[in-house]
Design a protein around this nucleic acid. Sequence first.
DNA 1: CGGCATCCTTCTGGATACTG
DNA 2: CAGTATCCAGAAGGATGCCG
Lengths: 119, 119
Amino acid sequence: MADNVCQKEHKKEIMAVHDAMDVLSGKWKISIISSICYYNKRRFSDILNDVNGISNKMLSKELKDLEINQLIKRTVLDTQPITVQYQLTEYGMTLKTIINDLTDWGIRHRKVIIGDKKI
Amino acid sequence: MADNVCQKEHKKEIMAVHDAMDVLSGKWKISIISSICYYNKRRFSDILNDVNGISNKMLSKELKDLEINQLIKRTVLDTQPITVQYQLTEYGMTLKTIINDLTDWGIRHRKVIIGDKKI
DNA sequence: CGGCATCCTTCTGGATACTG
DNA sequence: CAGTATCCAGAAGGATGCCG
């Protein structure tokens, strides 16, 4: 019964997290957003280079997803040949905190893996 | 050239994010961590209930992954019948910030979807 | 209760080639 | 350059049943 004090409606929070992950999950999305985020403006081929191991097909698809979810904006530049630039939208920028936290955590995590993993 | 000022080694950061997502990606992992995080201690069947739509097979697998990555700790309680309790490790708790941010963002994101989405 | 094994379908995503 | 299309292997993951 004492325990019950803490048993509020956490389901709401858990579903919120799941909603967030719905948009952000996938092997690549967060990395792509990071790339665009860190460079502010970024072209297709640059992102292809930033994100280690991604194929153009995947990049294309993921970018489309992110655009649909209004996290990034696509701009076709009238150069020769054509170039396309991706940026975060205002809304996408609200992810910056998360990106930073994840970067931070990722750096620490790699250390833990290297230092701790048996195998 | 002026642009070059900002073109430092962002690849490191992007890879860090990717590393983080390596451990956290998948449809369910973050939700599972949230469940355990918000309740502090949580049993298998409770998590199964918290995380909407997950199957026991998936939950089992994901929990094992998280345990291997030392994010959660599994404790078998000597009850009848057996119960198993999951908690975040010290290390897992370093994710709390991220979880909170994601929760926050997820709540706002849902509003954007509902308010803005056509179709 | 917690969780593994099996079957089977769906989705993911790489390789390659082609277009504007 | 920035994609799109096709082909196809393999992974993800649901349903169900069994076991300690």
